[in-house]
Amino acid sequence: MGIKRGLKYDFSLLAILLIPIGIAINFVGAQIILLLKLPIYLNTIGTILTAMIGGPWVGMVTGASTNLVVGITNPVSFAFTPVQMAVGLVVGLLAMKGMYTKLWKVILASMAVVLTVLIVASPIQVLMFGGATGNSSDAVVATFLASGQQIWTAVFSTKILVESVDKIISNVIAFVIVMKMSPRYLSKLNYGAIFIKKK
């Protein structure tokens, strides 16, 4: 099957309509975090959710679009677009392989997502922004640097710390919500069948 045919199959009208919702969920997650004053981001729940039920490509587009929309008011986020894309891609692929059907598997999958973020985000952060991101986690980087670590290890350590918490919570929330979806709805999505509970 050619990739073009594959893309057309993945981007059904129903899947396309999921993308704006996924982006909005990312925004709302980030907004609630601000309101509840919690020290994480939760800005990938929508990406994870759409990747789970819409497939890796739809997840990737949701991730990319999120950062492009944020970029309208804060262009720094343009630079981190590949991170959200990678999250969508990896979650989509893992979900296809059945890694999002049980809670313990989701936790394992979260670790894979953390690793992905580490690999994709760290070079951007170090090479383009000298190790900074412009949010509160930069203080953690500074602390690691002050304790004598090199810039790369300092960024890695910070990311492992913050991202592990953030991505496990985000993945579990997305998982819980998908499990609440009606079988009738899931059956209409190309990648939904795997989440329908067998009777």
């Binding site: 969920i25 609630i32 729940i45 959710l49 819980v176 919500i177 609440k180 979806m181």
Partner: peptide, 9 residues
């Protein structure tokens, strides 16, 4: 979050 998301999905 969950009712909001389920509703819009």
């Amino acid at each position: 979050l969950s009712p909001l998301i389920l509703g819009s999905v």
